[in-house]
Amino acid sequence: MNNLKILVVDDESRMRKLVRDFLVKNGFDVIEAGDGVEALDIFFENKDIALIILDVMMPKMDGWQVCKEIREYSKVPIIMLTAKTEERDELQGFELGVDEYISKPFSPKILVARVEAILRRSGKDMQESIIQAGGIVLNETAHTVTIDGKFLELSYKEFELLAFFIQNKGIALSREKILNNVWNYDYFGDARTIDTHVKKLRGKLGEKGNLIKTIWGMGYKFEE
C-alpha cells in the first residue's frame, strides 16, 4: 500500500500532525486541509487520493457537507472523525456514504489499521486497473480519465458510463441495459433519460465524443 495518498481534514493542526505522522510512518503520502472548503479544493485538484480522513466539526464547511459534495462525484473511501458519540450522528454518516466512523479520542495505531483494512476492501492496494480505447485512458483504480495525457473532469456517473462503454466497445447497448448496469438497479420510467447523460459525456470528450455512436431506436455503441 506504499505511496497511496491520504487526505487528512481537521481544523486542529495538532490532530492533523498526529494522524499524518502515523500514516507517513506506515508508508502513506499525506495531504492536509484545515477546513471543509480547502478539503474540497484539494480533493478536486488531486486525482489520485485513495482515502479521506474527515473531521465533522470544522469552520466554513462541516464534514457532513464535505462528504455530501464528494459523494456526488466519487466513492473514495471516507473515515469520519468526531467528538460526538450519539447514534444518530453515526447513522447520518453511514447514510451519506461514510465507510468508517471513529470517535475522538482514538488510538492512532487503530486508525491506521482501519485505513489499511478499508483500502484492502476497496481494492486500492491492488495493481491499478487501466482500460483504454480510441486514445481515451481510463484508470478504474484512481477513477481518472485522460485524453492525450490531459486529465478530464467527469462526474461519478459520467465516469461509470464511459467505463461501461469502453468495456463493451463494439457491442450495441440498449438504454435499459446501460441504466441497469451503470445505475445498478432496474429503472422504472423513461429510459431515454440516458440520452441526457450521453450528451453531457460527449460534450466533455470533445472530438472523442464521436466514438459513442447512436443506434436509433435502441441505444448506443462505443466504436473506435
Rank of each mutant, 00 (worst) to 15 (best):
Lys60Gln: 11
Tyr73Gly: 10
Ile131Met: 02
His197Ala: 04
Ala191Asn: 13
Asp186Trp: 00
Lys169Cys: 10
Ala191His: 12
Gly123His: 02
Met15Cys: 12
Ala83His: 01
Asp55Cys: 04
Leu18Ser: 09
Phe151Ser: 13
Glu128Tyr: 02
Asp35Arg: 01
His143Ala: 08
Glu100Met: 08
Asn184Tyr: 07
Glu100Phe: 07
Ala39Thr: 11
Asp41Ile: 09
Ile78Trp: 02
Trp216Cys: 03
Val76Ala: 02
Asn181Glu: 15
Lys213Asp: 11
Trp183Val: 05
Phe164Gln: 05
Arg114Cys: 04
Glu87Ile: 07
Val98Thr: 13
Gly170Met: 07
Asp62Gln: 08
Lys47Gly: 12
Val76Pro: 00
Tyr187Lys: 01
Ile130Ser: 05
Phe188Ser: 13
Asp148His: 14
Lys208Ala: 14
Asp99Ile: 14
Asp48Lys: 00
Met57Thr: 08
Leu152Pro: 00
Phe94Leu: 08
Val137Phe: 03
Asn168Val: 06
Lys150Leu: 05
Ile53Tyr: 04
Val37Lys: 14
Gly149Phe: 05
Tyr73Phe: 12
Gly206Val: 00
Lys177Trp: 05
Asp10Ile: 03
Arg192Val: 04
Glu90Ser: 09
Glu160Cys: 10
Leu111Asn: 13
Phe159Trp: 09
Ile131Tyr: 05
Gln65Asp: 15
Gly63Asp: 07
Val145Ser: 08
Phe28Thr: 08
Glu72Gly: 11
Ile147Asp: 09
Val19Gln: 08
Ile42Glu: 10
Asp62Ile: 00
Val8Lys: 07
Gly206His: 03
Leu4Cys: 08
Trp64Tyr: 15
Pro108His: 04
Lys199Pro: 00
Lys17Ala: 06
Lys109Val: 11
Asp186Val: 04
Met15Pro: 01
Glu95Asp: 15
Ser13Lys: 15
Glu100Pro: 00
Thr85Leu: 00
Ala163Met: 04
Glu90Gln: 12
Ile6Tyr: 12
Val56Thr: 06
Arg192Trp: 01
Ile102Tyr: 04
Pro59Thr: 01
Gln167Trp: 05
Arg114Ile: 02
Pro77Ala: 12
His197Phe: 11
Lys157Tyr: 15
Val145Glu: 12
Trp183Tyr: 14
Gly219Arg: 01
Arg192Leu: 08
Ile6Asn: 11
Lys68Glu: 15
Glu87Leu: 09
Glu176Ala: 14
Leu4Ala: 11
Gly97Tyr: 06
Ala50Gln: 08
Gly219Ala: 04
Lys68Cys: 06
Gly135Lys: 09
Gly36Lys: 06
Ala172Ile: 07
Leu179Ile: 03
Gly203Thr: 10
His197Ile: 03
Gly123Met: 00
